[in-house]
Design a protein around this nucleic acid. Structure first.
Lengths: 209, 209, 209, 209
DNA sequence: CATGAATGAGTGTTCATTCAT
DNA sequence: TATGAATGAACACTCATTCAT
């Protein structure tokens, strides 16, 4: 009983063929319509599994959204960590993270829309594994910023958490209208704009003296 | 049957007490949840009328949204026309329109959200009376712009329809994130910013010569 | 929201033809199978109404049982009050009540079974209108007993509430096996036996002196 | 397919560790809720086995109840036979059987309830191994009675089968209300009462002649 | 203008059951 | 012996919609 929102039933291996088919189908459907309009029936048909199977993987409808998001973001954070491996310097890392974030929004608009707009309506999300991954992503960002402060790349006048807020806010601000109105954009260009804005505010201006 | 989307049954006077109560209730509910999640039952309870009565005023659910939007926008356009009466000069008028538009988004966030985000999902909207009013609003804008071109206030290098697009796009771009994330803003400030952007691009720079 | 267990929706008149048909059908079905095994579908078919209509009269399944019970017991208590009108003397009244109670169990075995056995499993019952009627029935009994004590017919050594408990317990004890095992019995005989047991314990033995 | 009600698959040893865990879990659950409300899932969780395993031991849900009952009663009859070994004289034996029966109801209320109340609803029970054991129990009783008649301890005026019916009926009548309403009782006392009633009716009154 | 009564088609959810391994 | 994966059929419940009054 209770408000258990463990999206995935524990008895099922995370990557059974059925679950993958379902996740894929949900992703597709989220491109066509909003989460609320999607029915088990549609998913089942598109994934070519029974409705009951979906139910065994994602305990209820909120769990479905969270579960799919979780699968998606798990992969994202994993990839990000990989990419950061060969990068040195906090600002370099930061730029890489921003690029990856924007690129992810660009390529994966379905999830971008959900994350930017809809998620606020589903309080259960904030208990989900998906949310925990978001938090771990926030931790990565924060660590990079602290590293930058420590090595003198980033100003120590602004609290690191505020800087993180600036980074995320700027990214969202840049991506939001484009994602919503389905406007094409270049990840590189937007990354440049965002970095300019952000670094301008947080960098220690070395030349100044 | 059929694609009949006349939102308001014609047999009923536009402003019967019942209809007002319903419209009001819907507006309130739209503040709490998305259009899709609202049910006749809730509306009926909040408006203290029978479900059947709603049904007599708004033929179906899409019609409901359109009808309420129509009522809202009818009032808006009416008011706008009124306000424009004492204003002379296209740019002055334009500024007034922009202000009114932004103010309307600011004050009436419920409808702002719908118009900015949700409306795209309801193709039937574009056959509705509400849409016709939007168009008449567009006509007003266009007339002002043409007037500006005619009297040399506005550059004739850009087609008036494009200018209108710029005006509306700029307003949306400014309001969108603020409305979505429930950020407070000053109508005056935003109007200034928008006008600066817009006028900068479309005005004939008199002093140049 | 909340645990609202008002069995009957307030918008519906208590005795609409639909509701009567439904109540009748449920009663029949309860004769054939246990409450848990009955489905909306069966009821709908037997009552020749739509499933949805049932739902408008009885908000959920627990509500259904309570609602039907309520209808039944309302009639019972009404009838009882009627019958008591011409009777004088507490013991006479008591005997009448006992007879009516046993007779009701005898004739209406379906409800007898539910009341004797199943009701314990449905805690929601105790918030229902049906339960309130039972209580009013208990009040009637108690009044009679108090009257008996007041006029010296019934011993004042036992608290009236305990006497009531004895009365009800004896009735249940007598009826239970017979009802459960579907054994025929004569209401008159059982009433005699019950009264003998009860009166023997509570009466003031006049002759004693 | 068909009316195959062999509760236990024959391919499995009667006492595999899995089966014991399942049986135990079912017994526990039957204490908490009625057979109809119990699901494979609950059993599986409580027994810490997979749902599928339950299914291999008990072919279907009716089979589950019967199987568990069978296990229980097999043990009961075994024990009974054991206890009867050192007892001589039909009435002595009878008394022993009655005591064991009542004691079993007393200690094992879960099964008592099922046997006294619910079993009537499951016609399939009467084809089960559990029922066969009950019958063998009946045979034991009958043999004792016949023995009593043969040796002149028990009246030959009543057919032995009727006597058996009296014995069982009396036991049930005494235990039923107590078991249903969860009333504590002493096995010894109830045995005395039952024996008194029974023996009074069936014994040959030696002193008469 | 307003309502109570009635319904069909669907939704999410559960469960017993099967089968390959 | 034991299990994870998969399913069909049902169930309670909701909702938009209709119509006679």
């Amino acid at each position: 009983m209770g408000n258990n929102l463990k999206a995935n039933s524990t008895t099922f291996s995370a990557k059974s063929p059925g679950r993958i088919k379902i996740t894929e189908a949900v992703k597709e459907l989220l491109g066509e319509k909003s989460y609320h309009e999607i029915t088990w029936g549609e998913i089942a048909k598109k994934a070519e599994v029974s409705e009951a199977l979906i139910y065994q993987h994602f305990k209820h409808k909120p769990g479905l959204l969270c579960g799919v998001l979780e699968d998606f973001m798990e992969a994202y954070v994993l990839e990000l960590k990989q990419e950061l491996k060969g990068v040195y310097g906090a600002l370099n890392k930061l730029q890489r993270v921003i690029w990856a974030h924007i690129q992810s929004f660009n390529v994966n608009r379905v999830f971008a829309k959900i994350l930017l707009l809809e998620i606020r309506g589903y309080p259960l999300f904030f208990d989900s594994g998906a949310y925990r991954i978001i938090q771990s992503y926030g931790d990565i960002l924060l660590d990079i910023i602290k590293e930058g402060v420590y090595y003198g790349e980033i100003s120590e006048d602004i609290p690191p958490k505020d800087i993180r807020q600036i980074v995320l806010g700027t990214i969202e601000h840049q991506c939001l209208p484009r994602v919503i109105f389905d406007i094409e954009f270049s990840t590189d260009n937007l990354t440049d704009m965002a970095c300019q804005t952000i670094f301008n505010g947080i960098m220690i201006e070395r030349g100044r003296a």
